Amino acid sequence: MTLKLGDIAPDFTQDTTEGPIHFHDWADGKWVVLFSHPKDFTPVCTTELGTVARLKPEFDRRGVKVIGLSVDPVENHAKWAADIAETQGTAPNFPMIGDTDLKVSKLYGMLPADTAGGSDGRTAANNATVRNVFIIAPDKTIKLILVYPMTTGRNFDEILRVIDSMQLTAAHKVATPADWNQGQDVIIVPAVSDEDAKSLFPAGWTTHKPYLRTTKQPG
Rank of each mutant, 00 (worst) to 15 (best):
S70A: 10
S70E: 03
V71Y: 01
P73F: 11
N76Y: 09
N76C: 12
H77A: 11
A78R: 15
A78L: 15
A78K: 11
W80F: 08
W80Y: 09
A82R: 14
I84Q: 01
I84W: 01
A85H: 12
A85P: 00
E86N: 15
T87W: 15
T87R: 14
G89N: 05
A91G: 09
A91T: 10
P92N: 12
P92E: 01
N93H: 08
N93M: 10
N93D: 13
F94M: 11
P95G: 06
P95V: 01
M96W: 08
M96L: 15
I97G: 03
I97E: 02
G98L: 00
G98H: 02
G98M: 01
T100Q: 14
T100D: 07
T100N: 08
L102M: 09
V104N: 01
S105E: 02
S105N: 03
K106Y: 08
Y108F: 13
M110W: 00
L111A: 00
L111I: 06
P112M: 08
A113R: 07
A113V: 14
D114E: 15
G118H: 04
G118Y: 00
G118P: 05
G118W: 00
S119F: 03
S119Y: 00
D120L: 13
G121A: 00
R122N: 00
T123W: 09
A124G: 06
A124Y: 11
A124M: 07
N127R: 02
A128G: 08
R131M: 05
N132T: 13
I135D: 05
I136A: 09
I136E: 00
I136F: 05
I136R: 03
D139L: 07
K140R: 15
T141F: 12
I142A: 00
K143R: 15
V147A: 15
V147S: 14
Y148P: 01
P149V: 07
P149H: 10
M150P: 00
M150L: 10
T151S: 09
T152H: 08
T152N: 10
T152V: 15
R154H: 05
R154Q: 08
N155S: 10
F156W: 07
E158D: 13
E158H: 01
I159E: 00
L160T: 06
R161W: 02
R161K: 14
V162E: 09
I163K: 04
I163C: 02
Q167C: 11
L168K: 07
T169H: 09
K173W: 07
V174I: 10
A175S: 15
P177Q: 10
N181I: 02
Q182P: 05
Q182A: 13
Q182H: 12
Q184A: 12
Q184V: 05
D185G: 04
V186C: 09
I187V: 13
I187H: 08
I188E: 02
I188A: 08
A191F: 12
V192L: 14
V192G: 06
S193Q: 10
S193N: 11
E195G: 03
D196V: 12
A197Y: 05
A197V: 02
K198W: 06
L200V: 12
L200E: 14
A203E: 15
P210V: 02
L212C: 04
R213N: 04
R213K: 06
